[in-house]
């Protein structure tokens, strides 16, 4: 792990780790959308996710980093790989990889990128050089207090959403119910 999440010390060499992990994330992202083989895409996505978990540690969010590793990298990506292996990919690899409206898509994405660049160059002065000092060592406890206090209703909705997702996934994937 790149950064130490114990909060009573500053992470060392922040710029170095930021550029390293950010670079890893972007390389992973590019590989996700360009690889022919979906398994390679999934592995590249795992690299992105793990690098992002380390960036969360740098941002003093150890709990989110832990959730990212256990849920995203350990859960969702295993599911993805599992499904990729269930559906045969031999044939789809030899086919065309990009759809017909890729030109339109690229134009739309470029426009969005231009928008981002415009916003961030204009809004550069809004953000100070340094963020606020380190939050506290009790990150997990405070996140829990918020989740079960202020965001109780949202939490319950999320559990309902998961229930719906479970039923939906079973209904969709099962041959005969």
């Amino acid at each position: 792990m790149a950064a130490d999440p114990t909060n009573h010390m500053e992470p060392v060499a922040t710029p170095f780790f930021f550029y390293l992990l950010g670079g890893l994330m972007l390389i992973g992202g590019v590989l996700v959308i360009t690889r022919k083989n979906p398994v390679h895409s999934a592995l590249a996505l795992i690299v992105t996710l793990l690098a992002q978990a380390s960036i969360y540690l740098m941002l003093y969010a150890p709990f989110v980093a832990g959730v990212q590793i256990i849920l995203y990298a350990g859960g969702i990506m295993v599911l993805f790989l599992f499904v990729i292996m269930l559906v045969s990919i031999e044939r789809s690899q030899r086919e065309r990889q990009f759809n017909k409206q890729w030109v339109v898509g690229m134009v739309a994405a470029t426009a969005l990128g231009g928008l981002f660049i415009a916003v961030y160059t204009k809004g550069r002065g809004i953000f100070p050089e340094h963020a606020l000092p380190a939050v506290e060592a009790q990150n997990t406890q405070n996140v829990g207090t918020l989740l079960y206090g202020q965001y109780m209703f949202a939490f319950e909705i999320a559990s309902l959403l998961l229930l719906v997702a479970i039923i939906g996934a079973v209904v969709m994937a099962k041959k005969r119910i």
């Binding site: 972007l26 992202g29 590019v30 996700v32 959308i33 979906p38 895409s41 999934a42 993805f80 499904v83 990729i84 559906v87 789809s92 086919e95 065309r96 990889q97 990009f98 759809n99 409206q101 890729w102 339109v104 898509g105 690229m106 739309a108 994405a109 969005l112 990128g113 981002f116």
Partner: peptide
Amino acid sequence: LLGVIGVLTRRNVVV
């Protein structure tokens, strides 16, 4: 942006 490009241009559902 990378995600948007992927969604708009790729054919494979998994990707």
